[in-house]
Design a protein around this nucleic acid. Structure first.
Length: 244
DNA sequence: GGGATTTGACCAGC
DNA sequence: GCTGGTCAAATCCC
């Protein structure tokens, strides 16, 4: 099946494109919008109903595909079992020069479908971050054998200027499927750092534990490797309420 | 008017 | 022939 195929795919199922694929599962509980941002700008180029899947699969490619010949693409599939879960499969790495941007320019974000909450002010706050983490499920499969770091990243909490849109609604009422979100291998480097790897890993466990207890959710699939990730010294892990 | 999204059609692999 | 992935014209939104 396609599902099993994805589970084990370092390469495309069709074997015609020997490209590695990544898979991230992100979801939010309590119907709240979740949002993740990998700092890349994606453009949707297709949507397809998948056999056996309730929800269509969306296809995205890097917005800079033409200008910078960036071949990065990703697929977003809403989970059948849990509609709040989005499975994101990445293909190709970004060759564009925008990969290190934390997020697209705010103006750009603003221009996107206005269903996203554009009064970001305090919604970018720690509360939002807390909610985000508290409701986030991440599952990256088959990363141990990858040469790249985990594609998952937590957005910055530096406020609107830096993470505009990072916590804006991931799922809007009007558009059942997000049209712009992202998650990249690169920003993971900005999230976790070298210095405190073991500490981080421990903290991550705490996050998951908190999540489990708080949401009583059976789904806690956090098994991606932290071996190659780095800790951003600027990331406010010690922010009040972050791990509470 | 420009850029992004939608959606039916097309293509290639199996 | 079926299915997933992509293309591209139409449409939408600012």
């Amino acid at each position: 099946t396609n599902a099993s195929c994805k589970m084990f795919s370092d390469f495309d199922c069709r074997k015609t494109t020997p490209r590695w694929t990544d898979q991230v599962r992100v979801s939010t509980d309590n119907g709240l919008e979740g949002h993740h941002d990998d700092g890349f700008s994606w453009r949707k180029y297709g949507q397809k109903d998948i056999l056996g899947a309730k929800y269509p699969r969306s296809y995205y490619r890097c917005s800079y595909r033409n200008t910078q010949n960036c071949s990065a693409t990703k697929q977003v599939q809403r989970s059948d079992e849990d509609p709040t879960v989005f499975e994101i499969t990445y293909r190709e790495t970004h060759s564009c020069a925008h990969g290190n941007q934390s997020v697209p320019p705010p103006e750009k974000q603003e221009k996107k479908r206005k269903n996203t909450n554009n009064n970001c002010q305090q919604q970018q706050s720690q509360q939002a971050l807390f909610n985000f983490h508290n409701s986030l499920r991440v599952n990256t499969e088959d990363l141990d054998n990858k040469e790249m770091v985990s594609p998952f990243s937590f957005p910055s909490t530096n406020g609107c200027t830096k993470s505009e849109g990072s916590f804006s609604p991931f799922i809007s009422p009007a558009t059942p499927e997000p049209t712009h979100y992202s998650l990249s291998p690169f920003q993971m480097n900005n999230f976790v750092g070298v210095q405190n790897l073991q500490h981080l890993e421990s903290d991550f466990t705490d996050i998951i534990s908190a999540n489990t207890s708080a949401t009583n959710s059976p789904i806690v699939d956090l098994d991606f490797s932290l071996d190659q990730v780095e800790l951003d010294p600027d990331f406010p892990f010690d922010s009040p309420g972050f791990f509470s």
